[in-house]
Design a protein around this nucleic acid. Sequence first.
RNA 1: GGGCCUGUAGCUCAAUGGUUAGAGCAGGGGACUCAUAAUCCCUUGGUUGGGGGUUCGAAUCCCUCCAGGCCUACCA
Length: 522
Amino acid sequence: MPDCTFYTTAIDYTNAAPHIGHAYEKVLTDVLTRFERLRARPVFFLTGVDQHGQKVQQSAEKEGLSPQEFADRCTVQFIELWKKLGIHYDGWAATTHPIHKRVVQKILQRLHDEGQLYKQAHRGFYSVRQEQFLTDKERNEAGEFGPEWGQVVELEEENWYFKLSKHRDWLLNHIDTHDRFVIPAFRKSELRNAVEKLSGDLCISRPKSRLNWGIELPFDTEYVTYVWFDALINYISFAGYFSEGGENLPRFESLWPAAAHVIGKDILIPAHGIYWTIMLHGMGFPDLQIPSFLVHGWWNIGGAKISKSLGNTVDPNVLVERYGAAALRYYLMADIVTGKDSDFSEERLRGRYNDELANNVGNLLNRTLNMSARYKGSVLRNIAVDHELLHSLAVTEFPQAVAAYFAAMGDYQVDAALRAVIGLARFCNQVIESIAPWKLAKDTAQSDLLDAVLYHLAESIRVVAILLEPVLPDAARGIFRQLQINSEPQLADAVWGVLLDGHILGAPTPLFPRLEAPAEVG
RNA sequence: GGGCCUGUAGCUCAAUGGUUAGAGCAGGGGACUCAUAAUCCCUUGGUUGGGGGUUCGAAUCCCUCCAGGCCUACCA
């Protein structure tokens, strides 16, 4: 078993600028990773870019660049965005990297040596314009290939194939016997249906005469590797598989199998659920070494899916500039149920941020620190006072919120985890209204109760900060600074009673300034 | 055509076959003054898409129809 939790994301295709869906997947994985770090468990987060393939080659040609130049230029956009969003990854998978090429070629060579690959001629209809073979799927209702394909010729071409179908029954059994193989469960049944229909093998090559932007087959240099076969291997090539040492890669045995490949619903079938899983099995990985998939949904816009042709793409860079990384991260985690689709709305982004972070959490911190400074000189006293509501906060609400948070995070339900945290903060605001510390401050006989209220609030806020850390790492540290806690947030401290008697709180500064709608443009 | 999924308050979502289907936001009314015009309380709002069935009991299980999404295909 691995001793380090390994999360990966899909690697993004360097053919277009990142959109909100790319950002969501990386933030989600970043949050899962930070959660592991927060509880002091070793974790490795791998993400990257998929740079080979026909579309990159074509786009590069259009702009008069080499494929590498084009891919590099696109790659920078992703790296810059991850920096802005605070995505803290441990490994970067770029498929044009020599390490990756070497591993892909070693795998291919071995599969070839073991007789798992074969060469076969394929005769079919080929679109010269689109540079691809057409199947019956591409025929229109009249049974013809439409004008969008340009000149269509019938030709014969030899290619290399991976014996996929002989693993079909194994895969069905694996699906049936491994509950967490695909999360959420309904995606698993979709995959199962697809596998049952599986027939035929996987073409893993492209002749160089058609496409040369790829990894050369080591045993047949007239061909390059099909882009999916190449790309999927990033999950192991950058995790140290077949490492020769000295490459600054992690130790493969400590990572594998991945706790979750975080992917979108569009690439479960067939790419990951069938191709990748069978590739691993073909390479000799036993059942226990087969990774799991966490399949997330899509952000729609106005009910329609994001597409360049509809022109409804949302540039995450614009959102970060407009609202900040924290607001975007929070919204992307809070307003979608992991696995399902959601509708993107800037109004909801502002609404949830203002209500839940600014008005609820931020203001709770602010009013608590203010009252402490005003009434108690910012000195926290841990005094035992018998008070029903405070008792219920410390003994019931607090542990329940922490437990709900853990349960939700364990199921990748970040939205539910956040609800638990916000609920705790909300309860604290209710406690304040109910006890009204400003009234206690006018009566010296109530001094101990006033101290107790402030202590309970500070403790709750401290843990709210810890629990928010995976989603809002900077804000969590901001809360710690205002509370004048010098340690780093960690889940081991998400228990009651850590702040000491006599602890001095800091001065309040609005932590989540309210967001306004951008001014209407023209 | 087939398969999978979804349908719960205006919106986003809860509710493991078990009290009178809940929460947040939005809407309405009020209170408070520590605070980021924040907060708190009360409140409006439901034929759980329709219909039928199983059950002592159904949002939940079964059938059917409707609406939507995704996948896939002339062999279910």
